[in-house]
Amino acid sequence: MTDIAGSKATVTLDVARTNPADRSHFEVPMQSAYARVLDALNWARENEDPTLGFRYACRVGMCGACAVVINGREALACQTSLGEIDGGTLRIEPLRGLPTRHDLIVDMRPFFEGLARAEAALRPREPDRRDLPVIPPASNERTTIEAQNGCITCGACVSAIADEAKVDDGVGPAALNRLLMLAFEERDGAGAARLKEIAAEVHSLGGDAIARAESVCPAAIPLSTALEKLKSLIADHDDQG
């Protein structure tokens, strides 16, 4: 074990278990100055409790599988350094608003169903096209799309607004963001048809809630901007009749 100058040699994990009444505590040695919350969870599982349930895959912030709530805030376990955390104890809970399956692992089905309900997928205008469209990256449409791109569907946004908006009642910020991208996408053939279905959700989602979702987004997607732009698109669409 390396004792890192200026930091604690161990960190305490306070982890929620499947039964909300149960919690487990682990004293985890800091293996590296750059160790992540994921490393601490893995150490606890390999050395203390082989039943501890947490989910991860890529370990480099690309897959979003390890999103949890760390000291009250949604974050990717693989991207959160132990050294960033204030205080000696890390409280780790599963994402909010999604059913828990095993300890820190939630059922992501309602989140994915939101994406499916929203039809947040390209409906191709030219599916048989056999070359690549010319897409100038500096065009207004493209810069709008690119500013919103990069979602890793981790579910942090729906967790952050779980108190205001139930996942089952709408489609969620990630799906709304994708619909905005598609509204500007010239290769998409569905046009504004999808926007009608989500108008009520767009208008009911509060500015504070979406700002909170944005603040925890590991891909730093400007979700507040997405909501504003959707509102304006829906208004334009209504004006046109």
């Binding site: 390209l122 030219e126 056999r130 469209p133 100038p136 500096a138 598609l182 996408e185």
Partner: peptide
């Protein structure tokens, strides 16, 4: 090449472009 055309035109993938919009 077929699969790239499909990913771009049917699935909406966008791979990086030059300033003139070519791949």
């Amino acid at each position: 090449p077929e699969r790239v055309f499909e990913m771009e035109n049917s699935f909406g993938c966008t791979f990086d472009r030059n300033a003139d919009g070519t791949i």
